[in-house]
Amino acid sequence: NITAAIYDEIQQEMKRAKVSQALFAKVAANKSQGWLCELLRWKENPSPENRTLWENLCTIRRFLNLPQHERDVIY
């Protein structure tokens, strides 16, 4: 289940792992930094009809659900 909290989790994970938006986007969703920036802007007004947005957030959720040491190896 995806909630608005995922946006904060993304920010916290980037700080914790000391990774850039570009690197996080690449490893978590195989996307660009610009894409992640755009995604983070949706926090203010996520559209329930935007299926692509929710699919991408689900992809990021799966990455964030990995154990921390696995995420660190991927970075």
Rank of each mutant, 00 (worst) to 15 (best):
I2R: 05
I2L: 10
I2G: 02
I2D: 01
T3E: 11
T3R: 09
T3H: 00
T3D: 04
A4V: 14
A4L: 14
A5M: 12
I6R: 03
I6K: 00
I6A: 04
Y7I: 10
D8R: 13
E9G: 10
E9D: 11
E9T: 05
E9W: 14
I10Y: 00
Q11R: 12
Q11Y: 06
Q11M: 14
Q12C: 12
Q12T: 07
E13D: 07
E13S: 00
K15S: 07
R16I: 10
R16Q: 11
A17T: 05
K18Q: 13
K18V: 05
K18T: 14
K18M: 04
V19M: 04
S20L: 06
S20Q: 13
Q21E: 09
Q21G: 08
Q21V: 13
Q21R: 11
A22W: 10
L23G: 07
L23Y: 13
F24I: 04
F24E: 00
F24L: 07
F24M: 08
A25E: 15
K26H: 08
K26I: 02
K26E: 08
V27F: 12
A28E: 01
A28P: 00
A29C: 01
A29I: 08
N30R: 13
N30F: 06
K31M: 06
K31T: 14
S32Q: 12
S32R: 09
S32P: 10
Q33I: 06
G34S: 11
W35D: 15
W35P: 11
L36V: 14
L36T: 04
C37M: 05
C37A: 04
E38R: 10
E38K: 05
L39A: 13
L39T: 06
L40S: 04
L40A: 05
L40T: 10
L40R: 03
R41Y: 13
R41E: 12
R41S: 12
R41I: 10
W42P: 06
W42Y: 03
K43P: 07
K43V: 06
E44D: 11
E44Q: 03
N45Q: 07
S47T: 05
S47G: 12
S47V: 13
P48T: 11
E49T: 15
E49D: 10
N50R: 12
N50I: 05
N50M: 10
R51S: 12
R51N: 03
T52Y: 13
T52G: 11
L53F: 08
W54S: 08
W54Y: 07
W54V: 15
E55S: 10
E55V: 07
N56G: 15
N56L: 10
N56C: 14
L57Y: 01
C58E: 10
C58R: 12
C58M: 04
T59K: 04
I60V: 09
I60H: 00
I60K: 01
I60P: 00
R61N: 09
R61D: 15
R62Y: 03
R62D: 12
R62Q: 14
R62G: 07
F63E: 00
F63M: 02
N65R: 08
N65L: 07
L66R: 12
L66I: 03
P67T: 02
P67A: 06
Q68A: 12
H69F: 14
H69N: 02
H69R: 10
H69E: 08
R71Q: 03
R71K: 15
D72C: 10
V73F: 10
V73W: 09
I74Y: 00
